[in-house]
Design a protein around this nucleic acid. Sequence first.
DNA 1: GCCGTTTTCGGCCCGACTGTTTTCAGTCG
Length: 580
Amino acid sequence: MITNAEIASILSELARLTVLEDGSPQSFRVRAYEKAARAVEIHDEPLAPLTAAQITKVPGLGASSAKKIRELADTGRLAKLDSLRETFPPAFVEVTRIPGVGPKTALMLRESLGIESVDDLKRAVGDQALRDLPGLGAKTEENIARSIERLGIGGKDRRTPIVDAMRIAQDMVAALEAMPGVDRAVPMGSLRRFRETIGDVDIIAVSEGGSGAIMEWFTTMSTVTDVVGFGAKKSSVIVGAGIQVDLRVMTAAQFGSASMYFTGSKAHNIRLRQLAMDRGWILNEYGLSDSASGDLIASETEEDVYAALGLPWIPPELREDTGEVEAAIAGSLPDLVDVGHLHGDLHVHTDLSGDGRDSIEAMLDAVVARGLTYVAITDHAEDLVINGASRDEMLAQRAHIDELCVRYPDLTVLHGAELNIGPEGSIDYDRDFLAGFDFGVASVHSQFDLPADVQTQRVITAMNNPAVNVIGHLTGRMIGRRPGIELDVDAVLAAAVETGCGIEINSHLQRLDASADVLRRAVGSDVVFVISTDAHDTRELANSMWGVRNARRGWVRRDRVANTWETAEFLAWVASKRGR
DNA sequence: GCCGTTTTCGGCCCGACTGTTTTCAGTCG
């Protein structure tokens, strides 16, 4: 049976190819397909078994979409899509990935020069064949040539892992804020929404003194390799390895509406503008105002603008138009977790781990300095040959912790281990030795390419082990570098409830594992999560803020996160698992 | 293509920048 995700993906492709058929990314048909794809994606129940009439009941899906979905479910194909793919083969679609080349230009190039691929276009540019075409010129030809060169590092749909984008944004923000006339600079866009990969880095600089000097400075920084836009209000540059950074300069009075606009998502913004329109208002980056009189209604803070639209403030991590607007209207936004809610860290390494950097004393000092009241020390167990600790080393560490406890009267220190899940779900040590630990995190560190059913059983077997309180970094993925193990996520979430085993939300920006998508699948269930840093040095303890934001993006309610609980309640949860 | 207490047609989110024009189309976010 075809899944909603598969249907949504096909409708998205239909939208992309219809852009070419209609010659416009804004055609109403394109937008209808995009909206339909989104509607299918966020619909809770499978659509494949429904009749066309039932499908039409879903908002965003009309008679035409219903017919297409039935065709897909019944035949596995979509004639309309097959014919579009024939008209616009992948090599031609590739041409539209070139920045600056949209559907109109691509179609015109095909019509006038027979361009069917990026290679064709490269040749035409070499022959200077573009500059004499209507609407184009020498400048456009040069820009397309440069864009093709840049294609080597990704086209319009290139995405950068959040860990890299975050670093660039932080550096840029610091540099901007050091500049005279800039009152503050704040990253926006998908970075603020905390997507795990980022297209462009968007930044707002707040200034009352005009933008000229700021834009001049921004576009001539030493890290800038290319300037793709230079204007009074907006400029865009390429930095370092090819990441685009967009800067908008706004006044403090516009900051609320501006940050909503630049945080997006686009789909979320469209929903808000429709709400504004219903009231006879207009919403843009400069504010919410009356369409007729032009009178400003709200702009200074996001809270002001949302409130004027009759909504509570919606956290940026939720702004994807995947149900957050409806929840806001209904007053049922989830009560999300903040860093200040965390009382403990349940995955912390010391220099006993081969890859750990700081002593246990340093780690405990840092934990106390962060205001935490409990912590689990979880160095690697012996099966991780390079980094793991032997039994004797673990016993010595436990004795050491007992001695140290007097120095930390307000901190509950659990002696734990990060256990390794073998291919069949077994873990390090033996039952008796495991019983000596206060806490167990079990993680996959090897054999990432077993079949999904084997991996699923592997993790569930580990969950059933009484020594395992939490599954660490669920899939082992590294964003943008390796995919992580394949799992039947729903089966794993069900087993988590069944066994009382917690699931870690790993705070490393490269991991963010379990992913926000997985977390969202658990909404409404009784799965217990813990937000852990997996810190290998004292500095990394601050990473909890990333885990928190990933949890927020996954709609995880605060009360489902065990390390927001007070010490006694938390310890009771730990004990109940170990007693099974 | 979708939708409807302005209902079955006529609307559909909004603005900046570029390059080509000489008032605007195309692209992008």
